[in-house]
Nucleic acid binder design. Structure first.
Lengths: 117, 117
DNA sequence: ATAATATGACACCAATAGGTTTCGTGTCAA
DNA sequence: TTGACACGAAACCTATTGGTGTCATATTAT
């Protein structure tokens, strides 16, 4: 049901600060484009394009009501981000021990280790 | 101690698939650029530029050893991402109820709601 | 019917991103 | 000391991005 070939992925979608701001704005309120763009110093068209990127990533849903198109957040795709993040969580938990290893070998053996060619 | 004016933020840094791959590669191994770039179909210089973006975002640390520069993951900045994400977690937990609201008002009152101007 | 509104589609533009190759420099090995 | 190696810096190219303005269309209000 969700097999649309998405051109923009979540990572790309949230890379832009304006788009992150949009997500926050639409977090629990459905809004038409004109109202949304009133919150930004750029043109309605620009905001509209940002919304499309978000929609392609599945992060917002659109719904036509009369002559307006209302947008609202769909947080579901953020779960992919969470999954991705969770992979690294154990590493910052271990960060102290990792740092220890790092310092231990310092610049005292500048030569061969690991699989250097 | 970490007050470098970072030109690239974490969100931007992880937007690129190559860079995400780099993070994974460096997750617990320190590697010099040449070895790293051996894993990618692009030039060493290109990989090097990706590494710099990651470094500017604080996601990798460099350390000069002789004539080589070794890179390793620093997962710490990912915590910002986690904080950002956690804000939305409650929304996908509530997704069902949100969907209910969504359906309830459907197209039956296409007029005034929220803070329209 | 006519005018106003909301929006998407389009054409366009400047800046950035991601890639290339070339070159200079520091470090290691013979 | 001479050559090979590892790397960053620089100049350059193309595609993408983020923005603009204009226009066509659908919908609503008069």
């Amino acid at each position: 049901m969700n097999a649309s070939p998405q051109k923009h992925d979540v990572f790309q979608a949230i890379a832009d600060p304006t788009r992150r701001s949009l997500l926050k704005l639409l977090v629990d309120q459905e809004m038409p484009v004109t109202v949304i763009s009133g919150h930004y110093p750029m043109s309605r068209t620009a905001v509209s394009k940002h919304l499309r990127v978000l929609a392609e990533a599945g992060l917002v849903k659109e719904r036509k009501v009369g002559r307006e198109t209302r947008y609202r957040l769909d947080p579901e795709p953020l779960q992919e981000l969470k999954r991705w993040l969770s992979y690294y969580e154990r590493y910052w938990e271990n960060k102290l021990s990792a740092l220890q290893r790092f310092v231990e070998d310092d610049d005292s053996n500048p030569g061969i280790r690991e699989q250097s060619p």
